[in-house]
């Protein structure tokens, strides 16, 4: 029976794959159906994942099996339920309290985290001796790294109009940004093509058995 279900699973996968690919011809009911099923399944998956990996271990399990030591968890449980009151128009304002706790914690955490990892660490990594490179290529690269970082940051400085000589670093910053966007674009293209190859492999190997 397992092999029958496995074949059925392959056919379900094939149906969804072809339904999505049918969009290349034009928008059609098969694509719309597959799209909506994708939304439903993804939302359901997200909920179940959240229940088993976040809510049960952090809240429900502790409240049910060790209530006396976790009475304080009634506060997030209550705040969580208050969050759901957003769906009731007359009680919507109550959801602002849990939102305030979430936002307060999130901004506190993100402010420190970004300051440490994305600002100070990156700043430290840029403060290098460019001449310390082992080869000429490394030395040139180190200079490019320093100049690119400084000019890139200067480009994002919008508090003053950049004219004349002040626009030069900004322009150099744009060049570096374009190189970075080009590299990202190249990687995106490759990732998408790789996914396409995966789907074609599934159709030709798992379904049609044309290739081995």
């Amino acid at each position: 029976m397992v092999s029958t279900m496995s074949v059925l699973g392959t056919w379900i996968g094939v149906f969804f794959t072809l339904s999505i690919f049918s969009f290349l011809f034009k928008d059609n009911p098969f694509y719309k159906f597959a799209e909506q099923v994708f939304i439903g399944l993804s939302a359901g998956y997200g909920l179940i994942y959240l229940i088993y990996n976040v809510l049960i271990p952090n809240l429900f399990h502790k409240l049910i099996f060790d209530f006396s030591h976790n009475v304080i968890l009634l506060i997030p449980a209550t705040l969580g339920l208050m969050m759901l009151l957003r769906l009731i128009p007359s009680l919507q304002w109550l959801s602002k309290y849990p939102l305030a706790v979430v936002i307060g914690t999130a901004v506190g955490i993100s402010m420190l985290r970004y300051m440490q990892s994305d600002f100070l660490n990156q700043l430290t990594a840029t403060m290098i001796n460019p001449l310390a490179g082992a080869t000429k290529v490394e030395i040139v690269g180190n200079f490019l790294l320093i100049i690119g970082t400084i000019c890139g940051i200067y480009f994002f400085y919008f508090s003053r109009k950049k004219e004349g000589i002040y626009s030069v670093p900004s322009r150099i910053g744009i060049w570096f940004l374009m190189i970075s966007f080009g590299a990202s674009f190249g990687y995106t293209v490759m990732a998408r093509v790789s996914l396409l190859i995966g789907r074609l492999d599934f159709l030709l190997k798992d379904w049609l058995h044309i290739i081995k």
Binding site: S110, D118, Q122, T126, N142, G148, F176
Partner: peptide
């Protein structure tokens, strides 16, 4: 090098914005 430099500039500028 050049791509990392731009990424670094984006990260640092965005982090300043987030702060």
């Amino acid at each position: 090098y050049p791509s990392s430099a731009a990424q670094r500039a984006i990260l640092m500028s965005a982090s300043l914005g987030i702060i």
